[in-house]
Amino acid sequence: MDPDAIDAVTRVPHGGESNPELVDFSANTNPRRPGGVARVYEAALAAAGRYPGDEYYAFRAAAAEYIGVTGTEIIPTAGGLAGMRLLCSIVIDSGDSVAIPKPSFSEYAREVRLHGGEPAFVRHDEIADIDPAAHRMVIVCNPNNPTGESYDHTRLRALADRCQASETVLLIDEAFLDFTTEPSLAGTPGVVVARSLTKIFGLPGLRAGFLVATGDRRERLDTARPTWALSTPAAAVGSHCLADTDFVAETRERVDAERERMRHRLTERFRVSPSEAPFLLCETRKPVEAVLTEAREAGLTVRDATTFRGLDSHIRIAVKRAHQNDRLLSAFDV
C-alpha cells in the first residue's frame, strides 16, 4: 500500500441496513443460508482457542472441488475484497494504470488508488473488448454490479488471451457468478478469480472467500497472503457451504423466478436493466431521494445507486424471499 495515497482516498458507501425493523433490499445477499451452518460454526468455535492451521487444507479442497480447479490454486482470503487487496499489493506499482468498469463496485478504484495506481474507467459494456496493453491490470465484475448483466464467456476468454500476451493481469470478480450458469475463468493462465461466500451463501459477516490463480502469480499470492487469513469458524463454515451444491442450484432457481417476476412488475414504474444477478438496477423518473423516502415509509430500504460512477437517477433492488418481494412491489404500487 502507498502511504502517500491514504490521505487522498475516502471510504465508499455500500448497501446494508442496521435497523432490524426495515426489510433490507439494499444489500444483495441471499436471505437464506445452507442448513447446518450454526451447528458447524458452534463446533468450530470450540477449536478457536488455538491458532488455525495456516494450510487450510479442508477449505482449499472444498473450494477447489466447488469451482473446478486444484487445491494448490486456491488462496484463502477473508472475503473477496481482502483477496483483491492482496492481489493489488503484489501487482500495482506507483502510477500503474488499471482498467476498471463503470459503473461497477466502487472498491475497485479505492483499492487501486490506495496502492498508488491510477484507475482508467471504461464503460462496463466495453471493458471485455479493450486492448489491455496500456494497463498493468484489468478488472471485470461478472455479472457486473450494479447493472446485473454477465459477460459472454468467449469474449472473456479472448480478453484473457490478450492480457496474457501483453503481460497484463486480469482480475475477474465472480462474486455473483454462482447465480448464473456461466462457466468460471478460474484456472485460466494469467487470470486471477476472486470469490466470496458473502452473496450466494448469505454470510456477509463471516468474511470468507478465496482467490484462484496459477503459476508464479499463485506462488506470490500464497507467499504474501496474511498468516491465519481465515478464522477457524470461517474456514469450517466455508468448507461446509461449498459442499452444498444443491443449495446453490435451488437458490439459482428461486432467484431466477423471483427476479423475472419483479422485473416484469417493476417495469410499470421504472426502467429496469436486464440482470442475471440477485438484484435489479432501476432508473427512476422521480428524484432518487423521494423514492428512497417512499420505501422507508413503507418499512423498506433500497440502494441509492447514484453512489456508483455514472449513475444519477437509479436505485438498486435486491431479490429477496417471495413474501418480502411482494411487500416491496405493493409499496411501489406495481
Rank of each mutant, 00 (worst) to 15 (best):
L185T: 11
A234F: 12
A235N: 10
V248D: 12
G49R: 00
P52R: 03
G209R: 15
L230N: 06
C282E: 11
L203Y: 10
A47E: 10
L281Q: 06
A186Q: 04
I75Y: 12
L281P: 03
V191G: 09
C88Q: 03
T245F: 03
L206Q: 01
A236K: 14
G215M: 09
R296I: 09
R33I: 00
R303D: 00
E258V: 08
E250C: 03
A120L: 10
G83E: 03
R269W: 10
D222E: 11
A27Y: 00
S273T: 12
R327Q: 13
R60T: 14
E294R: 05
S97L: 06
G117F: 08
R136T: 12
K320V: 09
R217W: 10
A160D: 00
P31I: 04
M84P: 01
A44K: 08
K199P: 06
A38H: 01
V319D: 13
L300C: 13
L281N: 05
A78C: 05
I127F: 11
C163H: 09
C241P: 15
R261C: 10
R303V: 00
A48C: 03
H115P: 01
R327D: 13
D2L: 04
F179V: 03
G202D: 01
T181I: 02
D131H: 10
P274K: 14
G205Q: 05
N30Y: 00
R225K: 07
A61I: 11
N325W: 13
G117T: 01
V248F: 14
Q164W: 11
G299D: 10
L114E: 08
T70Y: 08
T70I: 00
D54V: 01
L242W: 07
D4I: 10
H323M: 08
F210I: 12
F105D: 05
A322M: 10
P146D: 05
E21R: 09
D7E: 07
H14Y: 13
L329A: 03
F59I: 01
A63E: 15
S184L: 05
C141D: 09
I315D: 07
A277S: 07
F332W: 05
V237Q: 05
E167C: 13
S104P: 04
G202A: 02
H153G: 09
R220D: 11
C241F: 15
E260D: 08
V98P: 02
A46I: 06
D2R: 04
V212G: 05
A249F: 12
S239W: 03
A133L: 05
A48M: 07
G117L: 00
V334F: 13
E42G: 10
R113A: 04
M1N: 11
R136C: 09
M1T: 02
V138D: 01
P183Q: 00
W228Q: 10
E73Q: 14
S97K: 06
A277L: 14
T180C: 01
I130M: 04
V191H: 11
A318D: 08
P183K: 03
R11G: 14
T232L: 03
A331N: 13
G117H: 00
T307C: 09
V237W: 12
L311A: 07
D173E: 02
A322Q: 15
F247Y: 15
D304L: 06
A305N: 03
F210Y: 10
S196R: 00
F210V: 05
L156F: 02
L159R: 07
V334K: 15
Q164G: 15
G16W: 14
E182A: 14
L329W: 06
R285I: 12
K102D: 09
L266P: 07
D7S: 05
L156R: 02
L280I: 12
D222V: 13
